[in-house]
Design a protein around this nucleic acid. Structure first.
Lengths: 345, 345
DNA sequence: CTGTTAGCGCTTTCAG
DNA sequence: CTGAAAGCGCTAACAG
C-alpha cells in the first residue's frame, strides 16, 4: 500500500541501494543519479519506514529527552526546541520524565536508553549536573548534550552566561540607588543557583557594596521559597530595598509577601526574577527579569547532539545570548534608604 | 548483544511464537506455559524491539498527540498523562505540535499520521472541535480520542461537566451575596468557552438573577483579555462586585487591573478563574478556581484510545470529576452592593 | 494449545 | 561508482 524504497528505485531506474545512499547522504553517487533519485522521491512522496530503517541499520533514529525539572513552562519550551531539531533531520523524540524522588536516575535513564535503543540523550538541569549520571554516560559512551550544564568542560550543548546576566540586572538596581539588595537563592543542586549567586556577589563587589550574609537566604526555585525568603528578609531590622529572587516563581512569592505586608512595589521594594516566564508578565506588577532563549538553546543543543551522533568528535558547546527585561517591579530606592556612595571629590 | 525473543523461547523451552503470544496477551496459551515464559522474560530482562515489532506487525505501537493549545502548563499535564498510559502498554508517543496560524491542520495531521504510521491520535482542545478535522478522521477511520471535546456524541475520551462546575462556583458567589457577577469569556473557538458561559447563565437563572449582557465580555483565555475585560467591566457605571473569568490566565489579568485601580480583593471585588493552574496559586491573592484532573483525563483518554486500537468497537467517553478550589480571591459582596434578594415571608 | 515458515522494508556486507 | 544477496527481530499465516 505505502510506497517503498523499491518503488523509488524502479521509478529512478537504479537499485535500492543507490536510493538508500542518496537518502542517507552517503558518498559514491554520481550527482546526476542523485538528482534523479531525489526527483523520484519527491514525485512518489516517499518517506522511509522508520521501523525498517532502525531494524536494519544500527541506529534507531530516536533521541531521548530526559527531564526532571518541575517547571512545566520551561519543559514545554525545551520540548518544542528539541522537536524542531528532530524534524529537521527526520529523527524522533522519546520523552523520559525522571522521577527525582525515586533516587536512581542513572538506572532509570540507562534502562530507557537500552530499551529504546535511542541514539542519544538530551539533558536539562538539574540532570545536567548529576556527577553519577555524567560518569555513567561517559563510561558507556552514550552520545549526549546538555542544556545549561553546570560544568561545560568537555561537554557539548548550549548555555548562556548567567553570572553576566545577573551582574547586569544588579547593576541596574545599583544605578537606581539600591545598596541593600537581598537574594533568595535557587535549589542548591542546580548549578543555576550557584551561577546566579555568583553574579550577585560579583555585581556587589563591582559596585563596592559589602556582601551581607543576612541578605542572602536559601530557596528552591519555587513560589513557596520566595514567600519564606521574603518573610525572612523583610522581617530584618534593616530590610533590603530590593530583592533579587533566583527565578520568577520565587520572585512571585516575594510579591505576595509584599502585598500582604502592604508594601507598594516598586515604591517600597524593588523585585527581580530570572527566566522571563509567562508568570513574570502575569503577576502584578510585572516582574523585571532576565530572558534566556530556552527554545533556541534546546534546538541548538539537539542539533549538536545529532552532529555528534553522526561523528563522535563533532558537536560543540554553543554560547547563546540573554536579554534583560526591565519591567515595572523595579524602581528607585526609597528616599529613606542609604544613598548611593557617591565619591566626594 | 541484546536479548531477543529467541533467547527467551530457548530459556522457557517453548517456541518463539509462544513467547510472542504471551507478550501480546493473545489467547491459546496454557496458564502454566504463560507463567514460564513470563518468568524467563523477567529473568532475561527481555524487552521487545519496537522496530522489529512494528515492521512485522501491522501496528506501529506509536500514538500521536496533536496539540494546538497555547497553555504550556496544560500541555505538560496532558503529555504526562498520555505518557503514563503509553508506558503501561509499551506504546510510544509522538508529539505533533500544530501551528494554528497556518490554517490547514487537517493536512498537517494527515501528513504526520501517514509518515509516522501512527496507530492512533489523541486530540486536545481546540483541535477536538474542528469539524473538518473530525470529518477527515472519521472518513479515514483513524482511531482517535478527545480530551474535553465540545461534542461527545459518538466519540471516546474523557471530560468533566464544566457547566456544573461553573454553576457551583457561581452559586458560591451568590451565597456570598453577589448579585452583579461579570463574566469574561474564553476563546470563541473553544467549546470550553461555550460551556463555561452556559454554566454562568444557568447559575444566574437558578439564583433568580437576570442576565445582563453588559456584564459579559469576550475574551481569548489569555492574560491580556482578562485585562481588557476587567477594564470594560470595572469601567461600567454600575460595575460588578464579582468577576468570573473563563480561565486562570484571564483571571490574573483581572487581578492586575484591580490592583492598578486600587481595588482590594476580595473586599472590593471577588475574582474567580478556572483550571487550577499553578498560576492560580502564585498570583496575589490566590485565585478561587475549579480544578479538573487534566493529567488523569489525558491518561484515561489515551487508555481508551489503546482499547479502541485493539478493537474498533471498544473505548468509551469517560466522565471525570472536578473540584472547587475556594481561595482568597472571593469574599462577601461589598456592603454597598444590592443585598441578596431574600424573599420576605 | 503449540511450532514452522515466510516475509515486513530497509541497510549492510561484499562483489562487480 | 553501482548492484545482489543476506539478514535485523519480530509477527502472520498456516500447519500440526
Amino acid at each position: 500500500m505505502a510506497v517503498r524504497i523499491e518503488d523509488v528505485a524502479v521509478a529512478a531506474g537504479v537499485s535500492m541501494k543507490t536510493v538508500s545512499r542518496v537518502l542517507n547522504h552517503e558518498p559514491n553517487v554520481r550527482e546526476e543519479t542523485r538528482r534523479r533519485v531525489q526527483e523520484a522521491v519527491e514525485r512518489l512522496q516517499y518517506r522511509p519506514n522508520p521501523s525498517a530503517r532502525s531494524l536494519a541499520g544500527q541506529r534507531s533514529y530516536v533521541i531521548t529527552l530526559a527531564y526532571d525539572n518541575p517547571s512545566r513552562n520551561y519543559l514545554m519550551e525545551v520540548i518544542g526546541g528539541v522537536l524542531e531539531a528532530c524534524r529537521a533531520q527526520d529523527y524522533n523524540l522519546l520523552l523520559a520524565p525522571i522521577s527525582h524522588e525515586q533516587g536512581d536516575c542513572v538506572r532509570e535513564i540507562a534502562g530507557m536508553m537500552a530499551h529504546s535503543r535511542s541514539d542519544g540523550l538530551v539533558l536539562v538541569p538539574p540532570l545536567t549536573d548529576d556527577p553519577r549520571l555524567l560518569a555513567h554516560l561517559d563510561r558507556e559512551a552514550v552520545p549526549f548534550v546538555c542544556v545549561s550544564p553546570g560544568i561545560r568542560e568537555g561537554r557539548i550543548g548550549a548555555w548562556v552566561d548567567e553570572p553576566a546576566a545577573v551582574r547586569e540586572l544588579i547593576a541596574e538596581l545599583v544605578r537606581l540607588g539600591h545598596r541593600r539588595i537581598g537574594h533568595i537563592k535557587g535549589h542548591p543542586e542546580h548549578s543555576a543557583c550557584r551561577w546566579r549567586h555568583q553574579g550577585y556577589c560579583d555585581a556587589l563587589a563591582a559596585a563596592g557594596i559589602a556582601y551581607d550574609p543576612a541578605l542572602v537566604v536559601d530557596g528552591e526555585f519555587v513560589f513557596e521559597s520566595g514567600v519564606d525568603g521574603a518573610q525572612r528578609l523583610l522581617g530584618l531590622d534593616d530590610p533590603p530595598t530590593a530583592i533579587f529572587a533566583a527565578n520568577d516563581d520565587s520572585a512571585a512569592g516575594v510579591l505576595r509577601v509584599a502585598h500582604e505586608r502592604g508594601l507598594s512595589i516598586p515604591q517600597d521594594l524593588s523585585v527581580c526574577g530570572f527566566d522571563d516566564s509567562p508568570l513574570s508578565r502575569q503577576v502584578y506588577p510585572a516582574l523585571c527579569t532576565v530572558q534566556q532563549p530556552t527554545r533556541e538553546m534546546a534546538r541548538t543543543a539537539a542539533a549538536e547532539l545529532l552532529k555528534r551522533i553522526r561523528a563522535p568528535q563533532d558537536g560543540e558547546m554553543v554560547r547563546m545570548s540573554h536579554a534583560l527585561q526591565l519591567r515595572e517591579s523595579i524602581g528607585p530606592a526609597p528616599a529613606g534608604a542609604a544613598p548611593p556612595s557617591g565619591s566626594r571629590t
